[in-house]
Design a protein around this nucleic acid. Sequence first.
RNA 1: GGUCCCUUCGUCUAGCGGUCUAGGACGUCGCCCUUUCACGGCGAAAACACGGGUUCGAUUCCCGUAGGGAUCACCA
Length: 442
Amino acid sequence: HGGEFRLRIEDTDRARSTEPAIAAILDGLQWLDFEWDGDVVYQFARAARHAEVAHALLAAGHAYRCYATADELEAMRAAQRAARQPLRYDGRWRDRSDWPNDAPFVIRLKAPQTGSVTIADAVQGPVTVANAELDDMVLLRSDGTPTYMLAVVVDDHDMGVTHVIRGDDHLNNAFRQLALIRAMASFEPGWSEPAYAHIPLIHGADGAKLSKRHGALGVDAYRDEMGLLPEAVENYLLRLGWGHGDDEFISRAQAIEWFDLSGVGRGPARFDLKKLESVNGHYMRATDDARLVTLVAPRIETALGRKLTDADRDMLHRSMAELKKRAANLNDLATSALFYLRTRPIPMDDGAAKLLASAAPGVLAQARGLFAGINDWTAAGLEQQARDLAERSALKLGQVAQPLRAAVTGSAQSPGLFDVMALLGRDETLGRIDDVLATTTA
RNA sequence: GGUCCCUUCGUCUAGCGGUCUAGGACGUCGCCCUUUCACGGCGAAAACACGGGUUCGAUUCCCGUAGGGAUCACCA
């Protein structure tokens, strides 16, 4: 829609807004290629301006001092609970002016008590709430710091925010924020109401809401631990709660063209890791080999415990076309690539050991002999030898190829065996077979 | 509990009164391809929460029930 994307860090809770927490947000946004316009605004730095607005409201009679203590308010709520009444501030200081001079106080908004407010939400549609349901919220705490409710409204106004798009856990807040905006607008020009869009929250696979304690992960977990591609995460998230016909894979450009808030569903969607991995696999296959080599290299270096040489990277690059068809994420890709780069003797996994143990006697040695005499060390040439051997020994090709695969890759699964051998080269391939022959005869 | 919101295959969704014997994708299960595993191809099982209306006709509109969600701080 050609708008601006402004980034504001709401860090008024000093305990939670640590340096690493903020860095993780910026880092995650950048990884997903969500570039914001202009400078990052830090809310805490604007506390004085927030207080200024609270005092302007107080002076204009749209706010008042409340001297109720925490204990007093707790007692009030307990009584409301006991009487099965809704829990809300009862306005006990709303109309008083006998202010004690020395006692601590908060500033509360003098919100309208009659009538109702309707929000034309771009996602939820028109939503109406009676003003009687809303109580007088705290604007400024007793220590003089602003609450979130005050801060957002003031910052949105000062930053020229026209569209507030956020999780629907904020829908209720919108009504109170609107009351604040209207109070300001009543005596200061320029306070306009933004358009609201409240997007449903995402739930875990079990239907329970995603939270820190329950399945919610930082963006870095999807990147680092799970080895996903940013475009895959973006595509998956885009399709959660929104769709465009039967389209599953939607590029950034298409998303920009097609996406509209009116198409966003109103019910929460469940997070399905299987589908995310599937989408990621699609993007892995679509990614060019060079980028995959760069992305997967650090993981391989960690697994191998050494830096990759240029020759390693070249080997990786040449094997990538086949490897990427078999991997749903960068972790799997790294694991599946290891055997190309290991130094002899390579380890055998359980599947490989089993194949070697049940192999027809002598096949490995015979194949080794045939391969040693080969002139053109190509996939086609190697395959021909293997086929000839199988035919002569009345074996299926698999009975020849599988033990060979185990010896050469250390695993029962790999890309096409003869392509692997061609890539590995004569010396390495024959050496790996020799390694196995040495251990089995010994 | 009050207020507000939601409800199509197990999951994400298409559907915006008749084209629905309800489409796609993931997952599941078969088959094909094949030296293994994948990829790819073909196919199958699988849903309109329930009950009332409105209408010539409801998946689509309205109401109720049930279920689910959000929120009710001197947190954001």
